[in-house]
Simulated scan of single mutants.
Amino acid sequence: MDLYYEVSGYGKPVVLLHSGGADMRDWTFVAPLLAKHYKTVAFDGRGAGKSPSPMKPANYVEDLLALLDHLAIDQAVLVGHSMGGQIATDFALKYPERVSELVLIAPSLSGFRHSQEFEDWMQKINDAVPDIDKMVELSFDAPSYRIVMSGPHRDLMDQMFRHHLKKTGEWGTFESIWPEPPAAERLKELTVKTLFMIGEEELPDNIRVAECFRRVPHIRFIQMAGADHKVTLTHPDDVYRHITGFLEE
């Protein structure tokens, strides 16, 4: 196993999948809380944190399968944030027998068609390459980061994103492989019991993704007041409380 991971606690396995542009520090405050009751696994996805950079198109779903097999975990709770939620969703569709429950925190979604406004925002960030300061400024100048960037976790956000930007300079490719057909076309087939959390201050596209997930048969929605996209950093106690309540029912 070439991915970097950390395991803490004992009991039912809970695997944490971090957001894009970040690493396992996304779970800095949530993981220790979960580890009081569960075997908690946090890891750096390929190309993030201490894990190796992709030299060929990354397959994040198969990376997760390899991690579970390496740790001899037959079935786990998957908790995915943002892109981590996209990975968790595709994994649960492809390998439902390996997922006991699914927790999604403001996830992205494979096959989702982004708005022109979102595409223009991403293009502005890409056009700023290689000016990292400008890329950071443009990336966090969005309502979905207003709360976290005005609070005590601003420095952690900045450190993670700058590390990510520097690390992408090592990547051999930015291409990735996802199961077909994409999850956006298969949400009605998602049979795993699912909890969906999202902050009330989000990008319109992320709200539209949430609406897509209403097609999932066994799903519960929670909107978190006073939270933005980085609810894992700003509201860890609430995230922990909702997850444990969901799992202990």
Results as ranks from 00 to 15, higher is better:
I207D: 05
D127K: 15
L165D: 00
F140H: 02
Y5D: 07
V41I: 15
A106R: 06
E248F: 04
E189S: 13
A210H: 08
K56F: 09
L104N: 11
V79I: 11
W121R: 15
S115H: 04
M149Q: 12
P32V: 01
V216Y: 05
V129K: 12
H70N: 10
A72Y: 06
A48D: 03
P54R: 05
E175M: 10
I105W: 01
D2Y: 11
M1A: 08
P181A: 08
A22S: 15
I87D: 01
Y240A: 06
S53P: 09
L68K: 10
K39C: 08
G199E: 03
E211P: 01
N126R: 15
L78F: 03
S139L: 15
N59L: 04
A88R: 03
S115W: 03
R46E: 03
E200L: 12
F161D: 01
H218W: 04
F118V: 03
K230D: 14
K124P: 10
H164R: 14
V7R: 11
I207S: 06
V216P: 07
A210M: 05
D63Y: 14
W27Y: 02
H70F: 13
L65V: 15
D228R: 09
S8E: 14
L93F: 05
R146I: 09
I198V: 09
A88K: 10
V216Q: 03
V129Q: 14
V30H: 01
E202D: 06
F161Q: 07
P217I: 04
Q86K: 13
E62T: 15
L93R: 12
V77D: 01
Y145V: 09
E249H: 07
I243K: 03
T232A: 06
P57G: 02
I198G: 05
W27R: 00
I207P: 04
V7F: 08
I147H: 00
P13C: 09
R25N: 10
M149D: 00
L247S: 00
M224G: 05
R162D: 03
G111W: 02
K56N: 13
Q123K: 15
Y95M: 05
M157I: 08
H37G: 14
